[in-house]
Computed example of a mutant assay.
Amino acid sequence: MRRFSAIVTVAALSACAPKGELSASNAWVRLPAVSGQPGAAYFTVQGGAAADTLLAVSTPAALKAELHESMKGDHGMMAMAPLKDVAVPAGGKLEFAPGGRHVMLHSIGPAVKSGQKIPLTLSFASGKTLRIEANVVGAGDPAPGS
């Protein structure tokens, strides 16, 4: 019975523990197959103790970055739509991945090559910013971790 009480106590205390800090990880960038076309950035955001909203992503490696989402449109065709912002739930995980949410990177600089790392800065409604390094992969290269 004591063991059961200890388990219940630990579970109750764990539920009351503050959630972690807002963070981002697993960032990577896919270069475009055709020069002059946009590339895409992907990453995971882990929500902190309070809900927040991702407002923008920027990088010095591209002239413009836009939040986007891919979705199935009419007749099963894939379509993309820009996103104004993306809600990050408290303690939740937000994935930016191929076939879903992503960041379109327009006019990636010619010096950016596969195998490099480039910085991404994520800006949130709370005023927080996160800076992460993204691995760069070529258009035909496998995604990191695949």
Rank of each mutant, 00 (worst) to 15 (best):
M1R: 10
F4D: 12
S5M: 12
S5Q: 10
I7V: 13
V8A: 15
A11T: 09
L13H: 12
A15H: 05
A15I: 10
K19N: 06
E21H: 12
S23N: 09
N26P: 00
W28A: 00
V29I: 11
V29S: 01
A33M: 02
Q37E: 08
A40R: 06
F43D: 04
T44N: 09
G47S: 02
A50H: 10
A51S: 15
A56H: 05
V57H: 05
S58K: 14
A61D: 13
A62S: 13
L63W: 07
A65C: 08
E66H: 06
E69K: 07
S70V: 13
S70K: 09
D74E: 15
H75D: 14
G76Y: 05
M77G: 04
M80V: 14
A81T: 13
D85M: 11
V86G: 02
A90V: 06
G91T: 06
K93Q: 14
P98G: 04
H102P: 01
I108L: 11
K117T: 12
I118G: 05
P119N: 08
S123W: 00
S123D: 13
G127D: 06
G127Y: 04
L130S: 07
R131V: 14
A134Q: 01
A134M: 02
V136I: 01
G138T: 01
G138N: 05
A139S: 09
A143N: 07
P144G: 04
P144I: 02
G145D: 03
